[in-house]
């Protein structure tokens, strides 16, 4: 039963896929091919990132990280978060293990929430796509507003959540 529970989301989605297949075989086949494509994309990103997280976990000193991203870090925290999130590649779930590592090393919750925000809206490669499709003005409004919004959210989350209780499952 435990295994069934672990895979329940996957089983549910497979049922949806089967259901779609009954009505529209072509869409279902597309879905299978597209899933394969995203599996290939995932394998391009996740294993090296996890290895990087593992290395950072071993080599980065807790005191050092706390100094730069801890409670009293101010601008270095913002700067490092922008750098980490902005140079990132890939979907949000790749950011989760990185966030766990940062939290374990004593990073402030504010920067972790801000990091998710930066990861979703200010990744440099994606921003280039946005500029190409919608122009500079639109992109600056989107990224600028998003960054301010998620920084404020970070401040709010920092007050609500207890750092020591945030990590529910230490996957490392």
């Amino acid at each position: 039963m435990a295994i069934l529970k672990r895979f329940r989301a996957l089983i549910g989605l497979l049922l949806v896929l089967g259901f779609i297949y009954l009505f529209n075989q072509e869409t279902a086949q597309d879905a299978v091919f597209l899933t394969w494509d995203s599996l290939v994309d995932m394998m391009a990103l996740l294993p090296p990132i996890l290895m990087l997280v593992g290395l950072m976990d071993q080599w980065i000193d807790k005191e050092m990280l706390m100094k730069y991203m801890g409670d009293d870090s101010k601008f270095t925290g913002i700067f490092i978060t922008l750098l980490l999130g902005g140079l990132a590649a890939g979907p949000l779930y790749i950011a989760f293990p990185i966030a766990i590592m940062l939290l374990k090393k004593g990073s402030n919750i504010r920067y972790v929430v801000f990091f998710f925000g930066v990861w979703t809206i200010a990744k440099l490669p994606i921003v280039l796509y946005e500029i190409a499709s919608f122009g500079w003005g639109y992109t600056i409004v989107h990224v600028g507003f998003g960054l301010v919004f998620f920084y404020i959210m970070g401040i709010i989350f920092e007050r609500i959540f207890d750092k020591d209780e945030l990590i529910k499952q230490d996957i490392t």
Binding site: R6, F7, A9, G12, I20, D30, A31, M42, L46
Partner: peptide, 15 residues
């Protein structure tokens, strides 16, 4: 397990 579900979800969304 969650990852596999997410990938299938992406495939379904795109199709």
């Amino acid at each position: 397990p969650e990852l596999m579900a997410i990938l299938l979800f992406v495939g379904l969304s795109l199709s």
